[in-house]
Design a protein around this nucleic acid. Sequence first.
DNA 1: TCCTTATCGATACGCTGTATCAGTCACGGT
DNA 2: ACCGTGACTGATACAGCGTATCGATAAGGA
Lengths: 226, 226
Amino acid sequence: MSVVWERPEPSRRHRPLLDRPAIVAAAGALADAGGLDAVTLRGVAARLDVLPMRLYRHLDSRDDLLDLLADATCGEIALPAAGVGDWRARLRALAAATVLVARRHPWYVSLLGSRPPYGPHGLAYQEWLFAALDRPGLAVTELMHAADAFLGYLIGQLHLELLRVPAGATAHVPAPAQLSYLARAVAGGRHPTLARIFTEGRQLHATEAFEAGLEIVLDGIAARLT
Amino acid sequence: MSVVWERPEPSRRHRPLLDRPAIVAAAGALADAGGLDAVTLRGVAARLDVLPMRLYRHLDSRDDLLDLLADATCGEIALPAAGVGDWRARLRALAAATVLVARRHPWYVSLLGSRPPYGPHGLAYQEWLFAALDRPGLAVTELMHAADAFLGYLIGQLHLELLRVPAGATAHVPAPAQLSYLARAVAGGRHPTLARIFTEGRQLHATEAFEAGLEIVLDGIAARLT
DNA sequence: TCCTTATCGATACGCTGTATCAGTCACGGT
DNA sequence: ACCGTGACTGATACAGCGTATCGATAAGGA
C-alpha cells in the first residue's frame, strides 16, 4: 500500500519518550547483540520499557521497522566528499565506507539485499553513486549499467563474505566442523579443482578478496566508460 | 555441530513413504506457492500427510530443511557441458543457467546469499566454475579472485533484480504506490542525477541489466587473466 | 465545562519451532 | 519360537512470535 517514509508520526500529545528514531535505535542495538532474529516487536518494546502495542502507533508492521532500520543504517555510511578524485577513487571510497558499516553491523547485509533502498538515506546514497559515475555526454543507459554492476558486486560480495564466516566461528577462523567436512567432501576425487584450491590456496583475507574483486569490476566499468 | 549432508537418514524399517527427497520436494512446492515464509515444518508435514514431529527423524531443525532445499535447487541448475567454448562463453552459460533457476524460484536467491554452498550440488557447481576459469600456469589466488568477482556479481545482481520487482507487482510492472512515491521523493530537487535517470532512463529490462553487468565483470576478469 | 478523538494498556488468537514422553512395532539373539 | 531391546511414531505441551481487538483514559477544542 503506502510507503513508511510518507506516513507521518503521530502528534505526541501524551508522552515525548517514544519516536521513530528511538525505536529504530533500540532495534539496532538488539540486532547488534543478537542478529536480525533478535529484533522482535516485543524485544524492542521491552528495551524501551513500553508495551508492545505502543509501537504500532509509529509503525504498521515489523516490516516497517526493518525498512526504517535499513535506512537508518544506510545513513551510518559516511558518504565521502563529492567530486574529489576521479570516478574510480570515488567508487572505491564509497565501497570502503559501505563495507565499514556492513562489517560493524553484519545483519545490515541481508537488509541491504532484501529491502528497497528508497528511504531518504538510501536515495542520498544512490544519488551520490550515480553522480560519482556521471559525466557529460554519458548515455543514461551506460550510467545505469555501471551503477548496477557496482551495486550488484558490492551486495553479492558482502553476502559471500558472511558465508565464509559461518555462525559460531570468529572472523577468519572457520568453524572446525565445517572445515573438516569440506576436507572430507573434497577428498573424494570428484572435485579436483576444488581440491587443488583447498590445499594450495591459503585462506582468503576478506578485505583482500573484496578489493581484488572490486578492482575487477572497476576495470570492467572503465572499459565501458571510455 | 555436524553438517546435514553427513548425517545418514534413518533406516526405514517402518514406512517407505518419507525420505529427504520427498520432504525437500514438498518444501520446494510450498516455497513456489508462497515464498520461503510458507516453508514451515507444519506445512511440509501437512503436505506429506504426516505429523510435524515425524520430520525430525530426517532433519535436526528447520535450518537443515532450508540447507537441503538450497542444495536441491542448486541441483536444478543445468551445468553446461564442461570444456566447450572459451572461458567467457562458459561463464556466460553458467550465469544463464543460474539465472534461469533463480527466476523460476525467486526464493532461491535469498537462500543463495545466506546458506553455505557446501552440499553435493553446491560443490559440483563450484567445481564447474573453478574448472571453467582454470588454465595452466594461472595462480590460485588469481583464480579465486576471478571466481569471487563472478559469484559476487551473480548473487548481488539477482538480489537487485528482486528488489526491482517489489512484492505485489508483476514482473516488470512496479507497484504503483512505490513508483509514485519515488517520483515524489525525487522531485524534491535534492537528487538531480536520480531525477535525470528517472525521467530520461526507460525502465531497465531485467535480462538486459543482468547481461550488461555480466559483460562488465567478464571484461574485468579478462584484464586480469592475461 | 462538556464532548470528541487520539492514545494507551491489556487481553487474546493463531501461528511458529521444537522438547518431551508414552506407546508400538520390527528386528536380532538365543 | 520367543522375547528383550531399541528404533520409530504420535500426541501433547510450551514459549515465543506478530498483531487484532476493545474498554479505559486523558488531552484539546467549543
